[in-house]
């Protein structure tokens, strides 16, 4: 099967940048490639990957969600409290994902039904939820969790494998669905042109509401999977997570205005931005520069987009000119 490579230009350039980083590390700090390091790197990026999947859906539909960091904090604390009242861990995962979905549906209703811009709605929800949680917990951690909570009660190795498996099956499921299910294609349609999608018989408000609910549910899942790696739950988890997710999605080639992008790109974006901090430490670079470098990567990613498009337009222009 001949794959049209130019369609995946953005994913390719992100992948090339990632390869370059990996090669640099391979030469300068081969210790990076130990099994333990790769495993830890994978585990610490699981929450970012899961929320970035949700964020990809939201951005593909032409929306944005900056409230997910606050949702993440609430779901983390809720996971701890539920485990403490003796709920089995599987149920905890489920209930927390439902809680996330409920929080997401609040965003979805306001955006899809009342047609308030997503950035305003989620800004308001972000502030409200974060301060509400602070008011209730006053910064107290959830401690003395039951024994069966950490690692699903399976022990460290099995627990780690299970978390990674879960994360990747979620990723695979959504990647497949986005390409092959009618609902997945409808997200692209709504993001590309909501009015055209409506005329084609798709309900934009249903899709938009749906992606926010999905986003919430995935945030809940991410929060739960993150919590079970630790023996306590901190009350201020997930601060800044929304920006990490948006950055990863954009670096992975998804158009911020919606309608274009793939989950594969998001995976590369998460990998690139998630590796860079650890790689810097391995290379012995001062961690002060990490943030500046991340900003530069985002700018480079979108700037390369322009260069590609321009080159393509020029080529197209040459081809269409009469001989």
């Amino acid at each position: 099967m001949a794959v049209n490579l130019t369609r995946y230009q953005r994913e390719l350039s992100a992948a090339l940048a990632y390869l370059a980083l990996l090669m640099l590390v391979a030469v300068a700090a081969p210790a990076f490639y130990s099994f333990a390091n790769l495993r830890d790197l994978l585990l610490s990026n699981v929450p970012v990957l899961i929320v970035a999947v949700g964020m990809t859906l939201v951005i593909l539909a032409g929306q944005i969600d900056i409230s997910l960091g606050s949702q993440f904090a609430i779901c983390s604390v809720a996971a701890g409290l539920l485990a403490k009242i003796g709920l089995p861990i599987v149920l905890v995962l489920l209930v927390v994902a439902l809680l996330g979905a409920a929080l997401g549906s609040l965003n979805g209703m306001l955006v899809a039904r009342l047609q308030i811009p997503a950035i305003v709605v989620t800004l308001a929800v972000m502030v409200t939820l974060r301060d509400g949680l602070r008011w209730l917990t006053e910064g107290r951690w959830v401690q003395n969790l039951p024994r069966g909570f950490q690692w699903f009660g399976l022990g460290q190795n099995a627990g780690q494998v299970l978390i990674i498996l879960l994360a990747f099956s979620v990723f695979a499921l959504f990647a497949w669905g986005l390409q092959n299910l009618a609902a997945g294609r409808a997200i692209y349609a709504v993001g590309a042109d909501a009015e055209a999608a409506r005329l084609a018989g798709i309900s934009p408000s249903l899709i938009i509401g749906g992606v926010f609910i999905m986003m919430g549910a995935l945030t809940g899942l991410a929060a739960a999977l993150n919590s079970i790696r630790f023996s306590d739950i901190q009350a201020n988890a997930g601060a800044g997570l929304e920006l990490k997710a948006i950055a990863a999605v954009v670096v992975g080639g998804t158009a911020i205005n919606g309608g274009r992008g793939t989950l594969l790109g998001t995976l590369i974006g998460v990998a690139l931005l998630g590796t860079i901090g650890t790689a810097l430490t391995f290379l012995g670079v001062n961690p002060f520069w990490e943030k500046a470098l991340q900003g530069a990567i985002i700018l480079a990613a979108i700037a390369s987009d322009v260069l590609f498009t321009r080159a393509k337009q020029r080529r197209a222009l040459i081809q269409t000119q009469p001989a």
């Binding site: 520069w289 500046a292 900003g295 985002i298 322009v306």
Partner: peptide, 23 residues
């Protein structure tokens, strides 16, 4: 000039400026 979406450009410079200040 380059017609890039403001949200992403300024998200990039959001990290860049703060990172430069810290660096």
């Amino acid at each position: 000039r380059f017609n890039l979406p403001p949200l992403i450009v300024t998200l990039g410079t959001f990290s860049l400026f703060r990172g430069l200040a810290e660096g």
